[in-house]
């Protein structure tokens, strides 16, 4: 049995908790605001877009749990190494589910107007459950990260389709780069949860992830 990794210092856990709280709060504000507009307008785009942030918030929470489990090795003395592995497996499965749902809702928000018949929302959850199952069966974080990367590539395709269909007013500032940055940082955050990278890298990625969400939140709150 490999020796358990030492628990991270208290400051590090506190920082991780603070980071997660900020991200979760921003996602919740975005979800709440967009859902509020959806309730008045019944405009499906707001529904799909709000769900993106709901599941992204949950995914970030699970990412923090996974990261802490990964770095602590043994969580308290009562838990065995196998126990931690089991917990880790569960958190990765739920993480895979919520992360996939977030990206897929974002894809739906970009495509729903341009598809003749949009597939049922159930498809989002079926795909996400399949990805979660694959992540459990493969027992490798790589399978999960690869699935998120593939979904992000689908998101890029959705952005391209949306761009081709939308007749934009020249004055409108498009938010496509924000979508890409949002999920590029999501992928980087995942890598951080599963790889032990230097602390400077970690802080830089954390800072930039918060910045991307802050820009989106600013644009949402300013307009809506």
């Amino acid at each position: 049995m490999p020796p358990p990794k030492p628990l991270p210092p208290t400051e590090f856990i506190a920082f991780e908790a603070l980071y997660f709280s900020v991200i979760f709060l921003l996602c919740f504000i975005l979800y709440y605001k967009l859902r509020e507009v959806y309730k008045i307008t019944d405009y499906k785009g707001f529904y799909f877009f709000s769900n993106t942030f709901l599941f992204l918030g949950v995914a970030y929470f699970l990412r923090s749990v996974t990261f802490l489990l990964f770095t602590s090795g043994v969580l308290l003395d009562e838990l065995s190494f196998e126990g931690v592995r089991g917990l880790m497996l569960f958190s990765v499965a739920f993480l895979a589910y919520s992360g996939s749902v977030a990206i897929l809702y974002n894809i739906y928000s970009l495509l729903w107007r341009w598809l003749e018949k949009i597939p049922s929302e159930a498809l989002i959850h079926i795909i996400a459950v399949l990805i979660a199952l694959i992540s459990i069966i493969a027992r490798s974080p790589l399978a999960f990260v690869t699935s998120q990367l593939i979904l992000t590539l689908f998101l890029l395709m959705a952005i391209f389709i949306n761009y081709r269909h939308y007749k934009f007013d020249g004055k409108v500032k498009r938010a496509y780069p924000l979508y890409i940055l949002l999920f590029v940082f999501w992928l980087l955050n995942l890598s951080l949860a599963l790889l032990l990278l230097p602390i400077e890298w970690r802080f830089t990625i954390y800072g930039l992830s918060v910045a991307v969400l802050l820009v989106i939140a600013y644009r949402v709150l300013k307009k809506l």
Partner: peptide, 22 residues
């Protein structure tokens, strides 16, 4: 009041939909 608020916000909601491609 909610109806009046909707009318006030309508243009901004439209702009937002365009910005984010929703």
């Amino acid at each position: 009041d909610k109806g009046f608020k909707f009318l006030e916000k309508y243009q901004k909601i439209r702009e937002f939909i365009e910005e984010f491609g929703l």
